[in-house]
Design a protein around this nucleic acid. Structure first.
Lengths: 87, 87
DNA sequence: CTGGATTTGTACGTATGTATT
DNA sequence: CAATACATACGTACAAATCCA
């Protein structure tokens, strides 16, 4: 699983107008939509996502938090974050 | 408007611990439910909430972010945060 | 028109707590 | 007990939008 964010290393954030946390959301939801992530699947750890996307842990977390709040993901402390079984 | 961060009156005190960001959510939603905040009303600024609740800006922000994501609030950069007209 | 003040929006880094293996 | 991983919370900095003197 790749999770490349592109533009990694751009400190000045010369991004378009898509916030980084939105890119986290888009990436995960895209992988769910295409079937690369299926219900019950475990996501890469926050630290792995941080490394592969080049985004700080807090920003990774913000995207995941929103998807958990929306019911798309489920977080289990000590275990990991998983794709929700039902939408 | 009070927005005290005191422990009494919290809705979700079951299991002993309520996260601070949840207290922010509960306080705002409670004020909407009781009519103390009405659709179109402006909330106190993040900095005012920080002071009155004694909670860090990031945590205040997290609660507000979730309510914006749920459609309960609307944020307008440079203006303020308002109670959404539609529910 | 300009510039300051206010306020939200985004992003970073760090620390600590808690659950699971 | 140790390692792993999520959950919560803190503080800071700067960008962007709005308002007004």
């Amino acid at each position: 699983m790749v999770y490349s964010a592109g533009l990694a290393g751009s400190i000045t954030m010369a991004r378009g107008f898509t916030p980084l946390y939105q890119r986290v959301i888009d990436t995960i939801e895209g992988d769910i939509r295409t079937g690369r992530l299926k219900p019950g699947d475990q996501l890469p750890s926050t630290d792995q996502l941080r490394q592969s996307m080049g985004i700080s842990p807090g920003t990774i977390r913000k995207g995941i938090d929103m998807l958990i709040d929306r019911g798309v993901l489920r977080g289990h402390q000590g275990l990991g974050v998983f794709v929700a079984e039902k939408s």
